[in-house]
Simulated scan of single mutants.
Amino acid sequence: MSDTAFPKVVLFDLDGTLLDSAPDMLAAVNAMRAVRNEPPMTLEALRPHVSKGARAMVSAAFPQVDAATRETWIPEFLDHYRRELGLHGKPFDGIEAFLAAIEAAGSRWGIVTNKPESLAVALMPLLGWATRCGVLIGGDSLSARKPDPLPLRVAAERMGADLADCVYVGDDERDIVAARAAPMRSVVALWGYRLDEDDPASWQGDVMLDSPHDMLDPSRWMPQ
Results as ranks from 00 to 15, higher is better:
F6K: 03
G16V: 08
G16W: 10
G16K: 11
L19C: 07
L19M: 14
L19G: 03
A22L: 03
M25P: 00
A28Q: 15
A31C: 05
R33P: 00
R33I: 02
N37H: 09
M41Y: 13
L43W: 13
A45I: 06
A45Q: 15
L46A: 03
P48I: 11
V50T: 06
K52I: 09
K52R: 15
K52G: 15
G53P: 06
A56K: 09
S59K: 15
F62D: 10
Q64A: 12
E84C: 13
E84L: 04
L85N: 06
G89N: 08
I102G: 04
S107H: 08
R108H: 12
I111N: 07
T113G: 05
T113W: 14
N114T: 12
L123E: 11
C133S: 01
L136N: 04
S143W: 04
A144N: 05
D148L: 01
P151Y: 13
L152R: 15
R158I: 09
A161M: 10
L163R: 06
V167R: 08
Y168R: 03
G170R: 07
G170K: 03
D171R: 06
I176F: 08
V177H: 09
V177T: 14
A181T: 00
P183E: 03
P183R: 06
S186F: 11
W191N: 10
Y193C: 04
L195F: 05
L195N: 09
D196W: 01
E197R: 11
D206M: 02
D210R: 00
D210P: 00
D214V: 03
M215C: 13
W221N: 11
W221Q: 09
M222F: 07
